[in-house]
């Protein structure tokens, strides 16, 4: 079931240079993603999230450096590699076909396609059947596409804003389905602004800021290195350990760089806000925390 060569480093960026026209986005980017993990790719608009995902799926070519995905060069667009990658875009543009026709057209390109798994997923998410896909609501289309993508059993599953357009029960189903989909020989990458929706799902936090990772750590490790406190008075912003503060109901919520705390204090949203509000200070902090 699990082939050993698929375990370990699945995605590797080496010294990647990429930019649009005059603006350089990535300048010597290096990182590797390992199998059996869920990565949360966070960042503001224009931080380079989509570009990164497009580089690794071969939709864009790096100007310099090399990318390896499952031991393929994505630029070659090898069918064997493509059948192991599924990218769910933020807005699914599905053709004017019924679910059945869509599956009969598309599934044959994916050798691992599992139709009974698709059926069970569609049932679980109560996606209406037998209709033209374009007549479904955004949420239903996203659920259908998610189910189809997972049923292709790809090694690399990329989800771009997967919870956008899902209602609250659907978000719960989404979490269960993604939790179930993680396997030892698989990577899931979730790029999103909806930090709260993926907080419970991800192993690792990658925060992109202006083409650089200002956070490239496991969520548990970074969570153990911070302390979140409720303060009555606004904390001194010059304090070296203060990463972020925001007004809250009873005063102020403060995020501190504090490795002495016991246990994990996990609040991905606060962490993300801390990172993008003061990237320099945050980078300084994360550089001291064990990287992936």
């Amino acid at each position: 079931m699990i082939t050993s060569n698929k375990i370990g480093k699945m995605i590797e960026f080496e010294n990647i240079q990429f930019g649009y026209k005059k603006k350089t986005l990535f300048n010597g980017m290096n990182f590797a993603l390992e199998s059996g993990q869920i990565y949360g790719l966070l960042g503001l608009n224009g931080a380079g999230k989509s570009t990164l995902l497009r580089l690794l799926s071969g939709l864009l070519f790096p100007q310099e450096g090399s990318i390896r995905v499952l031991d393929y060069d994505p630029v070659q667009r090898n069918p064997s590699m493509l059948s192991e990658i599924y990218m769910l875009p933020e807005t699914p543009h599905l053709p004017t076909l019924t679910d059945k026709n869509f599956v009969s057209r598309m599934a044959r390109f994916y050798p691992n396609f599992d139709s009974s798994y698709l059926e069970s997923l569609l049932k679980e998410m109560s996606v209406p059947r037998g209709q033209i896909l374009t007549s479904l609501s955004l949420g239903e289309r996203k659920k259908f596409h998610l189910a189809f993508g997972l049923a292709c059993r790809p090694s690399v599953m990329i989800l771009d804003e997967p919870t956008n357009g899902l209602d609250i029960p659907a978000k719960g189903q989404f979490r269960k389905i993604v939790a179930e989909a993680l396997a030892e020989d698989r990577i899931l990458i979730i790029a999103t602004h909806q930090v709260k929706d993926i907080e419970l799902l991800i192993d690792n936090v990658l925060i992109l800021h202006e083409g650089n990772f200002i956070c490239y750590q496991s969520l548990s490790q970074i969570s153990s290195a911070i302390r979140i406190s409720q303060e009555t008075n606004r904390p001194d912003s010059n304090s070296e350990k203060l990463l972020y503060t925001e007004p809250s109901l009873g005063g102020y919520t403060a995020v501190w760089a504090d490795t002495e705390t016991n246990g994990e204090h996990q609040d991905l949203e606060l962490l993300f806000k801390a990172a993008i509000t003061n990237p320099e200070k945050f980078t300084q902090f994360t550089s001291g925390v064990h990287k992936l």
């Binding site: 071969g58 939709l59 069918p79 493509l82 875009p89 543009h93 390109f109 994916y110």
Partner: peptide, 14 residues
Amino acid sequence: PTRNEAYLLLPASS
């Protein structure tokens, strides 16, 4: 732009 990504990612060679 709404369809090219899906087309290019379709597992078939150029």
